[in-house]
Design a protein around this nucleic acid. Structure first.
Length: 137
DNA sequence: GCCAACGTTGGC
DNA sequence: GCCAACGTTGGC
């Protein structure tokens, strides 16, 4: 199982849009590195949903429910997408500011390469962000 | 809305 | 294969 982080502008397609839709393709990615990460995804992988631009926070996590297939919004076959489904909304979004100011999260791709829209997350990063975002039971 | 950082394209 | 020009992303 692998862990990921995927970005979207909330004005374009936000967490609530995904919840309303149920299962949705994560399409429109036109960057080779991001595409290749999606091709590495498998059913059962999990991903953070990150709001870029006007959100700047991890707002919940998702399940990958279909492996990479050709992106129907692309003009040719070289682009891929996966299907995602909202799993758990965060009680408290974990902001970019908090992530950047936590030395334990300083190596996240989100910090190191802010332009990559689909990126891997380590297990410890995943656990830490979930702990910050989800209410303790 | 601006612009720095990054990725891609295309002329040579 | 290099690199200048251009386009896009995303934090601020």
């Amino acid at each position: 199982m692998s862990l990921w982080l995927m970005k979207s502008e909330p004005d374009e397609f936000g967490w609530n849009d995904l919840v309303a839709k149920g299962v949705s393709p994560w399409d429109g990615v036109r960057n080779y590195q991001a595409r290749n990460f999606m091709r590495d995804m498998a059913v059962g992988d999990q991903a953070f949903f990150y709001h870029s631009r006007t959100g700047l926070a991890v707002v919940g996590n998702m399940d990958i429910v279909a492996p990479a297939y050709p992106d129907p919004t692309a003009p040719d076959l070289k682009w891929s997408c996966v299907d995602v489904k909202a799993a758990q909304p965060f009680d408290r979004p974990v902001t970019l500011d908090v992530i950047k100011n936590d030395p334990r999260l300083a190596d996240m791709v989100l910090v190191k390469n802010s332009r990559l829209s689909v990126q891997p997350v380590t297990q410890s990063e995943w656990d830490m962000i979930c702990a910050m975002g989800l209410k303790q039971a």
